[in-house]
Design a protein around this nucleic acid. Sequence first.
DNA 1: AAAAGCCCCTGGATGC
DNA 2: TGCATCCAGGGGCTTT
Length: 271
Amino acid sequence: MPELPEVEVTRLSFALEIAGAKVISVCMGKPLRWPLGCLPTALAGRSVQAVRRRGKYLLIDLDQGLLLVHLGMSGSLGFASQLPPAGAHDHFEMLTTQGTLRLTDPRRFGAVVYADSEDAPQACKLLDKLGMEPLSDDFDIDRFHVQLKRRKAAIKQVLLAGDVVVGVGNIYASEVLFWAGVRPTLSATRLSWPRSVKLHAAIRDVLARAVAKGGSTLRNFSNANGDSGHFQLETMVYARQGQPCRVCGTPIKALRQGQRSTFYCPLCQKA
DNA sequence: AAAAGCCCCTGGATGC
DNA sequence: TGCATCCAGGGGCTTT
């Protein structure tokens, strides 16, 4: 579930509440994607300073070191002074003086990794090759266009790869390409300057609107307060194959690219 | 260097 | 009801 908007919505839903909290204890459930990288007891006594986001990673800054949290495909966080008893899918829990932070992740593609600093190898390994942040000033149109020109793969795959621009996952890739009027199979290198400009704008616009709507809840995404998102109600193409395009009425088509499903309107996205 | 496949894991939906 | 198959928001690793 979690693409950039869901991760950002999650961040916003507990960042202020956890700031200043002191860690009491940490416990881990079943193994996640990677080991924590330190003894859970080593974190006790540290204080949480801020929660930031880089791509689909949440960075929880401690007074010493930081935790990198990734929600994978099925993860969600909860933060409250009183959480329900831990279930079979709760694999990380951090008790603090201001509440308990819990990662629930049935598929366990998610991760919680400790690093001494953002420059430490554990962090670099995850963050170094990430592309531009689409909602920040860092997202430069010229650079975006130049980087697309260097890629021959289909534009949708390039967006998903995350090394040009981060945060666009499978739902938003289809949505963004719809708004830009670009066919998902088009080789990235063939995007003209005006179309790159349009795509750049569509990425910012769609992601920002999705954040404003609390993200998309397809199965069970919720923010750290348990609220669902609503952006799934206004998708133009995602999971709408066979249904009429909301703009021109043409039936939406589906195809597979790199074992992921893609949706587009054959008329609105002519090439 | 870039692209394509495979794989991690669990659960829900669908089909026989 | 039971079982097999396919699919799902991600992304790292290995192979071409």
